[in-house]
């Protein structure tokens, strides 16, 4: 019998700790598939963040490092400078990248560091029980914004838009995991994020809108609709910068 679907080599056969309906598993599978397709498993070095994806180093089957909260871009810089021929990527959540680590991501992008960042934006803090994220949308209810996010908490931080004005960034795109079609596009975009690095074109970041049904307090299906109907109003999908087409 022909096998038409299998676990990517870059992903280990272990159960993950992610909640039902969480987008992390999908995104990590896509990364593994892309790395397999590039034949790059044995030269990949990944950095896991602090947050829900902290244990990603147990799921991928290639060299991995942890990093202090918010610092994966700095750690990735230190690794990439030692091994410029390896494929180095940082996997970050919205708290890690857009709150505590905003300085590192801006300066790493601004240096044009030749690394890839996969930024999973689910608009809420999962690991610490559902507090506001820097990317929570206006009026979104979280544990720390019980009446909904207002301007006094600040506005949702638009990372792709922010980094697009920097001369150092080369590829910036926002995709989502809301539908099979979007997931296929996400895979293609992640591939582009990695080929940017392989072609030595500099800093690439792929922002993936992802669902956290538990802390959005929704059914999984409803949380996917929330991405399409609510999140994309604040965070429009698209390519914000592309070295190949000079789109910026």
């Amino acid at each position: 019998m022909e096998k038409i679907f299998t676990r990517p080599e870059s992903l280990l056969d272990v159960p993950t700790h992610y909640c039902a309906g969480c987008g992390h598993g999908v995104v990590q599978r896509l990364i593994a598939e892309v790395i397999d397709s590039l034949g790059a498993r044995e030269k990949t070095i990944g950095i896991a963040p602090v947050g829900c994806a902290v244990l990603a180093y147990n799921y991928f089957d290639f060299d991995m490092s942890e990093a202090p909260h918010g610092r994966p871009p700095a750690v990735a810089t230190g690794i990439k400078r030692v091994h410029p021929e390896n494929l180095v990527f940082a996997y970050q959540g919205d708290g890690d990248l857009a709150a505590i680590g905003i300085a590192e991501i801006i300066h790493t992008a601004n240096r044009g560091e030749n690394i890839t960042v996969i930024f999973v934006n689910n608009a809420v803090y999962g690991m610490t029980n559902g507090q506001m994220a820097p990317t929570s949308i206006m009026n979104q209810k979280t544990i720390t914004t019980p009446q909904g996010r207002t301007s006094s908490e600040g506005y949702p931080l638009k990372v792709c838009e922010l980094l697009s004005v920097l001369d150092g960034s080369s590829f910036l795109a926002r995709v989502s995991t809301s539908t099979p079609e979007n997931i296929r596009l996400t895979k293609k975009t992640i591939l582009k994020g990695f080929t940017t690095q392989i072609e030595k074109k500099g800093f690439a970041l792929v922002e993936v809108l992802s669902a956290c049904p538990v802390y959005l307090r929704m059914e999984p299906e409803e949380s996917l609709k929330f991405i399409d109907n609510e999140m994309t109003k604040t965070f429009p999908l698209g390519v914000f910068k592309d070295w190949e087409t000079n789109n910026s």
């Binding site: 950095i47 700095a74 750690v75 810089t77 230190g78 030692v82 300085a103 590192e104």
Partner: peptide, 18 residues
């Protein structure tokens, strides 16, 4: 680096890389 934090974390990366 942009800060002492970033600097020591770059050190973390290069040390991890051997």
């Amino acid at each position: 680096a942009e800060s002492e934090l970033a600097a020591i974390n770059m050190v973390y990366g290069s040390a991890a890389a051997g």
